[in-house]
């Protein structure tokens, strides 16, 4: 039984790790702010969920499990709010998103002057 739990934890947390690395990669690689927000969202949602569920499977204390689940719930409430606040702030400040390009003219929107009016 313990072995099964261990294997599940391994799978969950390794998937979480892969997602985290992809997130970091996406933050560096994607062409403009709005697409990077999507990449950041991966770590906020699924990676957090997988890693903390993996930890919860390993804890034998009920209260620790409860705290882990609480962290997940709070992160699921606050992280989209923070993302919205960021996206809305940059939208209000006039930062234009880069729309439907095929990756060749990526550098356009990464221009710092875009933020100004």
């Amino acid at each position: 039984m313990d072995l099964v739990l261990d294997i599940i934890t391994w799978i969950l947390m390794l998937t979480g790790c892969v997602l985290l690395i992809i997130t970091g990669f996406g933050l560096l690689r994607l062409p403009d702010l709005y697409t990077r927000i999507h990449a950041g969202g991966m770590a906020d949602t699924l990676a957090t969920f997988l890693i903390f569920i993996g930890l919860a499977l390993q804890s034998d204390d009920f209260l620790v499990t409860a705290k882990l689940l609480m962290v997940i719930v709070f992160v699921f409430f606050t992280s989209p709010t923070a993302s919205y606040a960021l996206a809305h702030a940059s939208f209000v400040a006039g930062l234009k998103p880069m729309l439907d390009t095929t990756g060749s003219d990526q550098r356009d929107s990464a221009d710092p002057d875009e933020g100004k009016d």
């Binding site: 997602l19 992809i22 997130t23 990669f25 996406g26 690689r29 994607l30 062409p31 403009d32 709005y34 697409t35 999507h38 990449a39 969202g41 991966m42 949602t45 699924l46 969920f49 998103p97 880069m98 729309l99 439907d100 390009t101 095929t102 990756g103």
Partner: peptide
Amino acid sequence: EIFKANIDVAKCVLFPKTYLRPNM
């Protein structure tokens, strides 16, 4: 839904040329 969407975004990050089509 979050599960499915994560796979989509991961594909986008890894192969932006084929998948990335940002729109508003």
